[in-house]
Nucleic acid binder design. Structure first.
Lengths: 130, 130
DNA sequence: ACGGGAGATTGACAATCATCGATATATGCA
DNA sequence: TGCATATATCGATGATTGTCAATCTCCCGT
């Protein structure tokens, strides 16, 4: 990410005293960043795992499954997706910490990581997390 | 989206009686889709708006602003992004229903849509929404 | 009317992503 | 041992996305 050498349009502090026309605007009163770049990146990675309709449907199917676990072959057909694609989506969600994989025999069973969705939800509306 | 004419690997019902080796697996007992394709698409669109670190930081800055509203020029500098890029991100979030835009004079002030984040959070963990 | 500045829009480009077909790995059964 | 099957991985491809420079539009003060 090349640092833009000169951001074209930012005024430092007004040399000419602000004319008091309306709100002064653009007084960046944030002493500190509210969300650091690193945290933002990590959070965005988890939301990215949710930012696909087929992955949301997978989550929905997994969580509404009788034992809250599903194997790949249960997903391929209702989603109308090929098996490699389903495997790919599942891997993304496992890496995002949303699902866990348990292999039993030839089959791989996926289930929700307890609390993962809740902690994400708490990030969105802290007061709702109780 | 071309309908795959034949999904390669799905077994209908086992012609040979299941040998009772382990779990039967692959008994898609979902009579109905838990999350319809349309809803999934709409939900994913909103999560897509959250799936970028710079947009998350924008949300954070806007919500921690004194009056919970911010103008574009307040964002460009702390994010180290050009003005067109910030405008672009803001537009995406307005279209996702997360922010509202109010133009006052030459400036455009953005603020959180009340309840938008909470309703998204409720989608993630319904029981936590109170 | 004019000029300046805030913000939106456009076009381009590199990077990432979703999907697929083909192939590889591994497990259970005969 | 050898075969059939469930899942993972690989390589390729078309679509989407984040970013920027350049330009456009609109509002305001002179």
């Amino acid at each position: 990410m090349p640092t833009p050498v000169a951001t074209p349009m930012r005024r430092e502090s007004p040399v000419v005293p602000v004319q008091e026309t309306q709100a002064p605007c653009c007084v960046p009163s944030h002493g500190q960043e509210s969300l650091l770049a690193g945290e933002a990146e990590a959070l965005a990675a988890r939301f990215k795992a949710l930012a696909d309709p087929n992955r949301l449907r997978i989550l929905s199917i997994v969580s509404s499954s009788p034992d809250a676990e599903t194997c790949v072959c249960d997903l391929s057909e209702p989603l109308n997706l090929g098996q490699p694609t389903v495997s790919h989506h599942l891997k993304i969600m496992v890496e995002a910490g949303l699902l866990t994989r348990e292999k039993r025999g030839v089959w791989a069973y996926y289930s929700l990581v307890p609390g993962a969705l809740d902690s994400l939800a708490a990030t969105l509306s802290p007061k709702a997390s109780r």
